[in-house]
Design a protein around this nucleic acid. Structure first.
Length: 871
RNA sequence: GCGGACGUGGUGGAACCGGUAGACACACGAGACUUAAAAUCUCGAGACGGCAACGUCGUGCGGGUUCGAGUCCCGCCGUCCGCACCA
């Protein structure tokens, strides 16, 4: 009998409606073991892309699996809906960011629903909704009250033509992306969150996150950047110093190299540089140049090292007779340490590059192990490791650590003025989190500036501070700033006319607590303490590696901060118990003969392998096949999920996204890959139909003995069950997929030769197969479940338990090696003793031959795996 | 520049704690079915030599530890990612 093709798009709609009707993906009442599965919520950019499909499929498989395992699962979805693109779109289309954003949400929600995700849509939130951001404003006020939010002056990229602040990504080669004007560094008073108050704790607690990738923990640890060093105050030579400044404080982690010092350097924004620049136009110009370099560290450190001698001389703290020049240098950051360094060129590559450029002395002070003091010199490569002190007077002969201690001790005792010259200091690279954005489409910062009362918080009862709907987006700059009336309010304290804060919050604030809001999205408090206590932490968080530092660190901080402000239990510190970072979806790129990017649908292919070539369909001209890159709009190497789902169905797209590539690695989207997945969907359907013809009715108990073939099939099915369960649990979806292929192969081989005498084993194996792929291809699984004679929803069925008795075989195949080289294999009883295994191995003809008459010296037996005969 | 990751057949990848390298899939080749194509099914396949049995080599490169190394150690090479206002 011919079996009809499985019509995925049509059946998928049916099953989605069935799930909706039964409301089975709603989180249950807060009782019993729970599992909170969360994928990073999307930015509503317009349409979903394959990256979303991959991310949400992984989370969905895990959530469905955990639900089948009996957990009370919370699997919500929302929208990271504030941000710059909406404002850009508004500017370009002369519309409103809200209109653009909500239209996108609508589209994308429909797309996500077509994927058949097991999501509790009742909990949907959008961060741009006043219902969400009013709570965020309350959280802000509570942090302000606790001293964790404050204002200070900080540098921004300023576009002098557009009169707007630019993000780093909007600065291209030092120029504004839109205006092309040279970007300036400007000081602006901005809002900050005091994340540095938690530096130590955030670093310490990384040790407890054993379900996070090691890589992410390391990245965060480096980002926090704890170092132990010494802050050293250098007296300035009065004859050379600007008036009123008589010392310079530097921070160093290497006080041991102090005798190798050859100059000091300060940042262009250091007060000493500014003071010196007042009387030196050339220096002022140099400082200005440094400021133009951009704020990103990568720019600074890859730029050529440059400096300017201020003419100021500093006195060495360990030798009053020794004077060193003070430079302004472009590689010194005001934000780190004290904004000033002492340089030891032999021990630091940047210092060495700088010293060579300006002809400053290079004195080696650390002798690497194994080098000879008489011959060791530092030429083009600085040595920053440990070793023995040389050229360092009384430190000579000490090791690096002892020298550090000795210098620290001396400088702690020495006095400059009335205070010690040196002071031990733990320093962090981590800086406070600047949350001010001079933009419209973000959460308004709920404070009012009053001429007489200063910064006055908006009263909690007056929240939310709503964004005005009638802002204009026809020109650059902050629409809130130029709005005719919005910012004019009366001071809540004295009632006099005052001005609203026009900065909005960084969108990272929105995403720093959304996972907590999901636990009680309709609560009157921002975070419902009871719901948070039950649901948090998130048991499995899944998202892109690009969020490894900022989003995840900010969330770890923000959750602690608001918990300390009373919004959640102080014992609950970490929001995400387990983290998984998935790889990107990549695709080949194509260019026309003229060099324009082409969509995959714009080209057709000829030939294959090395001779494969592409032709632009529209022109018939040859096209260029480029490298495989992350799918992006700019390179047009996109595949539209809608088209794939419409053609192959959601299950097929999901299956392909889980196949082959390990989830943490990039996956390459290919036509062959998706069509192979499509073939498998049909194959499953055929196999299940064929099985359904041959098996006893649903729900009957086992007929008992299955016979050797039936028993072998049962073993295969239960082994797969054991493996698939563990691989889903460990998020090794590609391996689980391979095991399901294997079981399908076994089952279909059995079906082709079955004599109808072990139908019950076939039913069992088929049901197990269907239940196992159900989290991955849920619609197809429901269809198969029905075909197997059930009228219940498979999504409600529990995960089956593997029979331990079927997981081990009576006999095993072990490899036989002679002198470490595999020569043969043999099948032997699983319980065979060491002696029996040895004897069996020595009887093998291949072993005798490989020994070539040599004496057997020893035999290594690894039970059930290998025998190694050494002779 | 600093920090991190990765490197296995023609391709994506598998390989538990150091124990049969290449599971599974793609692409490919041969065959069956078909008027034909598609679909489907069967078989083959790391490289080299050999009719074959089999042998030699083989996890980026060079060393080391071990009875045994894709896996551990040391030194290189290559590719990719992040770097604080993109989300």
């Amino acid at each position: 009998m011919a079996i009809e093709r499985y019509n995925a798009p049509e059946r998928e709609k049916h099953w989605q409606q069935a799930w909706d009707g039964a409301q089975i993906f709603r989180a249950r009442e807060m009782k019993g073991p729970k599992c909170y599965v969360l994928e990073m919520f999307p930015y509503p950019s317009g349409r979903i892309h394959m990256g979303h499909v991959r991310n949400y499929t992984m989370g969905d498989v895990f959530a469905r699996y955990k639900r089948a395992r009996g957990f009370n699962v919370l699997h919500p979805m929302g929208w990271d809906a504030f941000g710059m693109p909406a404002e850009n779109a508004a500017m370009e289309r002369k519309s409103h960011p809200a209109q653009w954003t909500y239209a996108n949400i609508d589209t994308m929600k429909g797309q996500l629903k077509s994927m058949g995700l097991a999501i509790d849509w009742d909990r949907e939130i959008a961060t741009c909704s006043p219902d969400y951001y009013k709570h965020q404003q309350k959280l802000f006020l509570d942090l302000l009250n606790k001293g964790l939010a404050y204002r200070k002056s900080s540098k921004v990229n300023w576009d002098p033509v557009d009169h707007t602040v630019l993000a780093n990504e909007q600065v291209i080669d030092g120029r504004g992306w839109r205006s092309g004007a040279l970007v300036e560094q400007r000081e602006l008073t901005q809002w900050f969150f005091k994340i540095t108050a938690y530096s130590e704790e955030l670093l310490e607690a990384l040790g407890t996150l054993d379900k996070w990738p090691e890589k992410v923990r390391l990245m965060q640890a480096n980002w926090i950047g704890r170092s132990e060093g010494l802050s050293v105050r250098w007296a300035l030579d009065a004859a050379t110093a600007p008036q009123g400044i008589d010392e310079l404080e530097v921070y160093t982690t290497r006080p041991d190299t102090l005798f190798g010092a050859s100059f000091l350097a300060v940042a262009a924004d250091h007060p000493l540089a500014k003071a010196a620049a007042e009387k030196n136009a050339d220096l002022a110009a140099f400082c200005e140049e440094c400021r133009r370099m951009g704020t990103s560290v990568a720019d600074l450190e890859t730029a050529e090292k440059k400096g300017f001698d201020t003419g100021i001389r500093a006195i060495h703290p360990l030798d009053p007779a020794w004077k060193l020049p003070v430079y302004v240098a472009n590689f010194v950051l005001m934000e780190y340490g004290t904004g000033a360094i002492f340089a030891c060129p032999s021990g630091d590559q940047r210092d060495l590059d700088f010293a060579q450029l300006y002809d400053l002395p290079v004195v080696p002070v650390i002798l690497p192990p194994g080098e000879d003091a008489a011959t060791f010199i530092v030429k083009d490569k600085a040595y920053d490791g440990d070793g023995t002190m040389i050229n360092s007077r009384y430190l000579d002969g000490l090791d690096t650590k002892a020298a550090f201690e000795e210098v620290a001790k001396r400088l702690e005792k020495a006095k400059l003025g009335s205070k010690p010259v040196g002071e031990r200091k733990v320093n962090f690279r981590l800086r406070d989190w600047g949350i001010s954005r001079q933009r419209y489409w973000g959460c308004p910062i709920p404070v009012i500036h009053c001429a007489s009362c200063g910064v006055v918080p908006v009263k909690a009862a007056d929240l939310p501070v709503r964004l005005p709907d009638d802002a204009s987006f026809d020109k650059p700059g902050n629409p809130l700033e130029r709005h005719p009336t919005w910012k004019n309010v009366d001071c809540p304290a004295c009632g006099k006319p005052a001005r609203r804060e026009t900065d909005t919050m960084d969108t990272f604030v929105d995403s720093s607590w959304y996972y907590a809001r999901f636990t009680a999205p309709h609560a009157t408090a921002p975070i419902d303490r009871e719901a948070a206590a039950y649901w948090l932490p998130v048991d499995q968080y899944i998202g892109g590696i690009e969020h490894a530092i900022l989003h995840l660190l900010y969330s770890r901080f923000f959750f602690r901060a608001v918990s300390d402000a009373g919004h959640s239990s102080k014992n609950l510190r970490e929001p995400f118990a387990a983290l998984f970072t998935q790889g990107m979806v990549t695709h080949e790129t194509y260019k026309s003969a003229e060099g324009a990017w082409l969509l995959p649908t714009d080209v057709r292919f000829e030939g294959e392998g090395a001779g494969r070539s592409a032709v632009e369909i529209a022109t018939g001209k040859p096209a260029v096949i480029g490298s495989i890159e992350k799918m992006s709009k700019s390179k047009k190497n996109l595949v539209d999920p809608d088209e794939i789902i419409g053609h192959y169905g959601a299950d097929c797209a999901r299956w392909f996204m889980l196949s082959d590539s390990p989830p943490e690695r990039d996956v390459i989207w290919t036509d062959e890959g998706i069509s192979a997945a499509g073939r498998f969907v049909q194959r499953i359907w055929r196999v299940v139909n064929e099985a359904a013809e041959k098996v006893p009715a649903a729900g009957l108990a086992s007929s008992g003995e299955a016979g050797p073939e039936g028993q072998a099939l049962r073993r295969a099915a239960h082994k797969a069950l054991d493996g698939v369960g563990r691989n889903i649990e460990g998020l090794r979806f590609n391996v689980a997929v391979a095991q399901l292929y294997e079981l399908t192969n076994t089952l279909s081989a059995v079906l082709s030769k079955s004599e109808d005498n072990f139908g019950w084993s076939i039913r069992e194996a088929t049901e197990l197969l269907v239940k196992m792929f159900a989290p991955m291809m849920p619609h197809l699984a429901e269809e198969c479940w029905t075909r197997l004679g059930y009228n219940t929803l498979l999504a409600k069925e529990p995960w089956p338990e593997a029979d331990p008795g079927l997981l081990v075989d009576d006999s095993v195949t072990v490899a036989v090696q002679v002198n470490g080289k595999r020569r043969d294999e043999m099948t032997i009883s699983r319980t065979a003793s060491k002696d029996e295994v040895e004897a069996a191995a020595l009887r093998l003809e291949s072993v005798v031959r490989a020994l070539e008459g040599r004496q057997v010296k020893k035999i290594i037996v690894v039970p059930q795996r290998i025998v190694n005969v050494v002779g």
